[in-house]
Design a protein around this nucleic acid. Structure first.
Lengths: 187, 187, 187, 187
DNA sequence: GATGAATGAGCCTTCATTCAT
DNA sequence: TATGAATGAAGGCTCATTCAT
């Protein structure tokens, strides 16, 4: 039998995505996870701690996923392409995590923290953006605008793919999508 | 003295933005608005109806704002530019409405509705996008992807401006921002 | 029908005396009082506030009772006698309040406040004690010791009477009891 | 390293005095004592058993302390004086035990038992009281009243000393205090 | 003996909503 | 229209206790 703590985390992720944080009682999580309510609070002092733990774990694996094989590319553009494919592939194959991440990011009760954490998420991209600006490949605009816009564009594309997951295997389509992403950035 | 119904709506908007829907009890809204709890439910049958009313009103004025003076422009690009400025100016001058709108859109308990509504919001843009594709000015890609990406990019830019509101008066900056928006779309 | 708030207070007093604060759930109070749980919390923000309200009210009527007719007496001794009878009569006729008062006073979660409040309770006696010392009628010892001891002696006598309430009508007995109280104090 | 059982008892005493029985979870006792929760319940079947054990031990050493050297005195008064000093010295040097004892005595969930136990505590005094009455040295009043009043007076004095511990070394003061105690009793 | 994860009944409190005035 | 006391289902969390290791 799986570790109860892990079982709770997985169940919580699923239910949060389905119903949202507030509409998911801890009792429901416990029941669905097959544990007692006390067990949930044995592992996570509060509901909020459970949510945060989930977020932190999600962020960690997301960052891992985004970074993969990026540095093995030669040109800056291929590096961006790699990040781009990493991002959309991850979203498609981990839809729950992806939804959870959005939900958490827009949740008002964590506003301040969120921004900072949101940036961490795109740390790889930020580095590439800076590099590209220094080499005059990308637009010469405030880095902050660049980051927010890149993130927005990528989110837009991801949103579409989440609703049309079959497109992920259509290389022509994904290349078109990537060209949009690239066009926002390149100078 | 202002109309009580209106007072409730304004107070609710402010509090929802500050705390989120779920963390804002109707009792708090009533108290802050200076009315009895019964009065709130006299005007709005349920809390959800209050939220929806707020959303509908917001959407209406947002659409009005986005559309303004668009058809007075000659080229497609200037039309997009006009929409772009309309969007960012509105966001900056109505931050509460803007936040409320995002929050509502990402709220899981209205998921199905959201898509549809989100589209309505960008109805102007959609029309322009179609027009641009038909005239081979914009990228020849699925219209859905185009819409989602345009919306994402615009949201990204808006996010940045919300945190740096002083930039709204820096024409050079806003033109750079617009160029990003335009580059995503143009073929 | 009686005022609900009052009904809650009376029921709570009864139950607290029977079971103690901790062993009396608010749900039990509400049910026994014939109101909804929400009603209890509508009138008292927390369980603790309910307890404190009960204490304050009890203290008030106790003080009133102790003071009665004291100043109509001529000698200091008769004043003390009056207070003494006031105290034991009140205890016998309001056993619940009396028990509640003891329980509250010894409750560890209100330690600091208690001392101070306990003194208020015996404000009348304190004044008499000071007067007696100034006139060399009472023992010339630190007033604090005098107060605490007087209170202790009176509590002891009261305790006995609570278990033998019939004695309250035995004038010979009560006079013997009073002589004990008086002997502790007189110089 | 100290015996775990003993460690639990000592920690429990300290915490009960600080927070009261109900506000002291067994988990807190275990943690503070540096043992596992299971260990606590290995030594004491229930929380109540732990409390009772603590009470019994306290009572035992209290009785020992009160009795010390009493029978070595010649007159009844010196015997009372001896008990008196035994009582206040013990209270001052074992404040936690003293507080615990009071708390236990006033705890509503052991009401019935309490009376009986309270009597045991003053068994020495009771014997002396009886002896004194038989020899016409003490007041000729119901022995029950005598016991309760003596206890009350002594508690009052003790309370004062607990708050002014430095007075314990002021022989003039303690003799004044004793005279109060003696005056309540003597005929 | 010792451990600590697991249990689940039960507690305090919240909050959307109703209704008599 | 407006009021606010009253409602009660539901939620987060606690805590004494058990039990497999």
């Amino acid at each position: 039998m799986k570790d109860k703590r892990q079982q709770i985390l997985e169940t919580a992720l699923k239910l949060f995505v389905e119903n949202g944080f507030h509409a998911t009682p801890t009792s429901m999580i416990a029941k669905e996870a097959g544990v007692a309510t006390g067990t949930l609070f044995h592992h996570f002092k509060t509901k909020e701690e459970l949510i945060n733990t989930l977020y932190l774990e999600t962020k960690e694996i997301l960052i891992q996923a985004l970074t993969k094989q990026v540095n093995e590319q030669d040109t800056l553009k291929s590096k961006f392409r790699q990040v781009f494919y990493n991002a959309i592939n991850w979203a498609i194959s981990h839809p729950d995590h992806q939804f959870f991440y959005s939900q958490y990011s827009y949740s008002p009760f964590i506003s301040t923290l969120t921004r900072e954490l949101g940036l961490q998420r795109f740390h790889v991209i930020q580095e590439l953006l800076k590099e590209g600006q220094e080499n005059d490949i990308l637009k010469a605009i405030p880095i902050g605008l660049m980051i927010d816009t890149a993130q927005g564009t990528l989110d837009g594309i991801t949103n579409y793919l989440m609703e049309h997951p079959e497109k992920i295997d259509d290389r022509e389509f994904t290349e078109q999508a990537f060209s949009m992403f690239w066009d926002v950035l390149k100078g």
